[in-house]
Nucleic acid binder design. Structure first.
Length: 641
RNA sequence: GCUGAUGUAGCUCAGAUGGUAGAGCACUUCCUUGGUAAGGAAGAGGUCACCGGUUCAAUCCCGGUCAUCAGCUCCA
């Protein structure tokens, strides 16, 4: 029979040959590293016989799917170790994930599993790995499978089986450990040599917060020692970029329980960067015909009854404030206020689009366990705007907002993914009629296609009043966060009774686009800090130059250099302490200041400055005037294509 | 909100079977005037997160609360 290789080569093999044998026929090394095989598009074990002509691809750890197999088998190995150490443990699910694997478990007799237990489990895994047990696939009927789990009393697996009723059920067994599993698995446990259990956390059974909380043990494994070492090193490096850590070190922001959990305070340097960001986007808005408005931080509760946000989001809003006979809500969003501005006078189609922009601070009562640095907070400022337009203007306006959002990410060189967040079928989750939803989703998708957006579609991620385009970035440790967003809304114009007079002299309802390129300035800042690891580009650095005289003989010259820089608008500090220049340089570098000017007798005599660039080191002696010309260039925002 | 971990000087962290604590850096003063990542000395600095309990005695043991971190659920 004919076996077609990924490169197109066709080889003749005897019927019934398996993946491992094919790998061997290619090279010993491939046979050693193979983890699974794709046969005519289906992934299967290397031990499964192949009986017909087939196109194949042998998987190794280097393939995404290979990693999946490797980590999934690792999860089984970990489960086996836990089973040995804690007999009677019940097992939930144990999949591979983006970086490694986990298994959800429930220890018997209310036992708890803490971090101290992980080394024990690792040791047992090592032992089991060295036993070199084969992963054997076993197929059972559904009834037999149920029988098995009833016997060992694993109600979680029984529940999983309910969803598989009628199917042929496959199990995998390595050593004494048997687990319900679709596969694919490695040939044997000895391939899993280098691993680390990274954390333990609670996880609701089937992701449902009304159900039992199981213990989730996370781990990662590799076929080569160096890979594990590199991975652990990478984690360490990522920790150094943590915005919470850098925020403290660079004095950008603080969060103190004395003010309140999740209520960040911007320190002078952080506030400086934030204003730079705001001014950057403000300029772009003015170019695009937006007008700025300012609205208060609270609003009459009736506004949110009209919009539907209250009580839809009552769980995540602060309690209303009573003022005389009325109730006010700390605003969880800016839209209703902007709608009132729209309503304050009649509109002609000639006025549209009306684009109202505001850096609006909103307050949301996030669950305590959700709070995290600047990424998830209870008070934050959106670079918000609402565009009121006609149906005919909608597409162009969406395009323009998407383009603006993309400009933000390009400017800072941040990798971003784009998601069309559409509705699902869940009852009661969405407002407005289906027709409008379909129209809104259609328009978004058309626009996305017309501008060749590289997107994914996520059902159920829409907001309750409309679908959106979300821009998603990752933080230093790989978590995904939504930053920019563009939303189409047919619901609020109706609820608030927004109108305009068309060319036909009839009343019409406008469409609203809600959009925020940064999303929230707090969250954007968290990502910005981690993206640059605190080494901000010159134009947003709170301090751009430090002036470091070598001895007090140069203090006067240093003051002169300082004045010339600050008079030209550069942000400089001067270090007049009686410290050695090495010390001054070290501190300037730690503060991640883009440039340090070292001034000694030689520079003073020549009227020059010795320049040290952050992360690059000494870049030689320059005339101050020349240097400032370079600084002028660096001060310009450059969009990286 | 839930699970696990953590909370000691401004920062980073030690610490003792229960007898009210230490280092480095930062800070203040003095000495030092030094050429591309930390010169030296002295001083000052703590309700050991908070509240209760056990105890002759609690920072340490127990219970609760708050906060922080990771994960789960949620996220206009």
């Amino acid at each position: 029979m004919k076996i077609t290789m990924p490169n197109g080569d066709i080889k003749e093999h005897a019927q019934g040959i398996n993946g491992l044998e094919i790998a061997k026929s290619i090279s010993e090394r491939l046979a050693r590293e193979a983890v699974g095989i794709i046969v005519n598009g289906n992934r299967q074990d290397l031990s499964t016989p192949i009986n017909t002509d087939a196109t194949i691809k042998i998987l190794t750890f280097d393939d995404e799917e290979g990693k999946d197999v490797f980590w999934h088998s690792s999860a089984h190995l970990m489960a086996a170790a836990i089973e040995k150490l804690y007999p009677g443990t019940k097992f939930g699910i144990g999949p591979s994930i983006e970086n490694g694997f986990y298994y959800d478990i429930e220890l018997p007799d209310e036992q708890k599993l803490g971090l101290e237990e992980l080394p024990k489990i690792e040791a047992k895994m090592k032992e089991l790995s060295e036993e070199k047990s084969d992963y054997n696939r076993i197929e059972l009927s559904w009834d037999e499978a149920v029988e098995h789990f009833k016997k060992i009393g694993d109600n979680y697996k029984l529940e999983l089986l309910e969803g598989l009723q009628g199917d042929e059920i496959s199990f995998y067994k390595q050593g004494d450990f048997v687990d319900l599993c679709r596969g694919t698995h490695l040939p044997n446990t000895s391939m899993i040599k280098y691993f680390k259990l990274t954390s333990v956390a609670g996880a609701y059974w089937r992701g449902d917060s009304s159900r039992n909380m199981m213990t989730r043990v996370y781990g990662i494994s590799f076929p080569k020692k160096k890979m594990l070492e590199d991975y652990l090193k990478m984690l360490e490096e990522a920790e150094k970029r943590d915005h919470k850590k850098l925020g403290k070190e660079l004095e950008l922001f603080m969060i103190t329980p004395a003010i309140g959990a999740g209520l960040p305070v911007w320190l002078p340097k952080g506030a400086f960067i934030r204003r730079k960001l705001e001014n950057f986007i403000k300029e772009e808005l003015l170019k695009r015909g937006y007008v700025e408005v300012i609205t208060p931080h609270i609003g009459n509760l009736d506004l949110y009854r009209t919009s539907g946000h209250y009580p839809y989001y009552s769980d995540s809003q602060y309690d209303p404030i009573k003022v005389e006979d009325e109730e006010y809500l700390l605003k969880p969003m800016n839209c209703p206020h902007h709608h009132q501005i729209y309503l304050s006078k009649p509109h002609s189609y000639r006025d549209l689009p009306l684009r109202l922009a505001e850096f609006g601070t909103v307050y949301r009562y996030e669950q305590s366990g959700e709070l995290s640095g600047l990424s998830r907070v209870r008070g934050f400022t959106q670079d918000d705007a609402h565009i009121y337009c006609t149906q005919g203007q909608l597409k162009d306006e969406i395009k323009s907002t998407v383009e603006l959002t993309q400009l933000v990410f390009k400017t800072f060189g941040m990798p971003v993914t784009t998601r069309l967040s559409f509705r699902d079928e869940e009852e009661g989750k969405y407002a407005g009629d289906m027709e409008k939803w379909e129209l809104a989703q259609k328009v978004l998708k058309e626009v996305a296609d017309e501008i060749n957006l590289d997107y994914t579609i996520a059902l159920g991620e829409a907001s309750f009043y409309g679908p959106k385009i979300d821009f998603i970035v990752r933080d230093a440790i790989g978590r995904k966060w939504q930053l920019g967003t563009v939303q189409v809304d047919y619901v609020m114009p109706e609820r608030f009774g927004l109108e305009y007079i068309g060319a036909d002299n009839q009343k019409h309802t406008p469409v609203i686009i809600h959009r925020a390129p940064f999303g929230s300035l707090e969250r954007f800042m968290s990502i910005l800090i981690e993206h640059y690891a605190g080494n901000f580009p010159f134009w947003i650095s709170p301090v751009q130059v430090s002036i470091l005289p070598i001895s007090d003989k140069q203090f006067e010259y240093a003051q002169k250099v300082y004045s010339r820089l600050t008079e030209r608008g550069f942000r400089a500090t001067i270090d007049l302490r009686s410290e050695k220049v090495n010390r001054k340089i070290a501190e300037s570098e730690q503060q991640k200041i883009p440039f340090a000017l070292i001034l000694g007798q030689k520079e003073e005599d020549e009227g020059t400055v010795s320049v040290r660039e952050h992360l690059k080191g000494n870049i030689g002696t320059h005339l101050l005037e020349e240097l400032m010309e370079r600084f002028d260039e660096l001060n310009k925002v450059v969009v990286k294509e």
